[in-house]
Computed example of a mutant assay.
Amino acid sequence: MRSQEKRRVFISTGEVAGDLQGALLIAALQRQAARLGWKLEIVALGGEKMAAAGATVLGDTSSIGSVGIFESLPFVLPTLQLQKRAITFLQQHPPDLVVLIDYAQPNLNIGSYLHRKLPNVPIVYYIAPQVWVWAMNSRNTEQIVKITDKVLAIFPEEARYFEQHGGKVVWVGHPLVDRMQSAPSRDAARAALGIPPEQTVIALLPASRRQEIKYLLPVMLQAAKTLQDKLPQVHFWIPLSLEIYRQPIEQAIARYGLQATVRSGQTLEILAAADLAITKSGTVNLEIALLDVPQVVIYRVSPMTAWIARHILKFSIPFMSPPNLVEMKSIVPELPQEQATPENIVQNALDMLLNPSCRQQILANYQQMRRALGEVGVCDRAAQEILQTLPK
Rank of each mutant, 00 (worst) to 15 (best):
I195L: 06
I154W: 02
Q143W: 08
E71F: 11
R371M: 02
V332Q: 00
L258F: 14
V131N: 06
V76D: 00
R85M: 02
K146C: 04
L176I: 13
A224R: 14
I249H: 04
D19T: 13
P318Y: 10
H174V: 01
Q222L: 15
R2K: 10
A28F: 15
V98E: 01
V76C: 00
I238M: 05
G167T: 01
Y125I: 09
P196M: 04
H311W: 14
P74N: 04
D380K: 15
T283K: 06
L335V: 07
I127P: 00
I317V: 14
V43G: 02
L114Y: 13
F315T: 11
L204H: 06
K49L: 15
L290A: 01
G68W: 03
P318I: 06
T56K: 10
G111V: 14
L204W: 12
Q30R: 12
R310G: 06
T267P: 02
Q32G: 07
V297I: 13
N107R: 12
N355G: 03
E158M: 07
P218D: 05
A27C: 09
G47A: 12
L390V: 12
K84M: 07
Q228E: 05
Q143I: 10
I345A: 02
G14A: 12
G194P: 02
Q92P: 01
L242R: 15
P294L: 03
D19E: 03
N348E: 13
E287W: 15
A104I: 13
H165F: 11
V219N: 04
Q130R: 12
T283I: 14
P323Q: 09
L204E: 08
I147Y: 01
I127G: 00
I244Y: 05
N120S: 06
N109L: 11
A260S: 08
M136R: 11
A188D: 08
V234K: 15
Q233M: 03
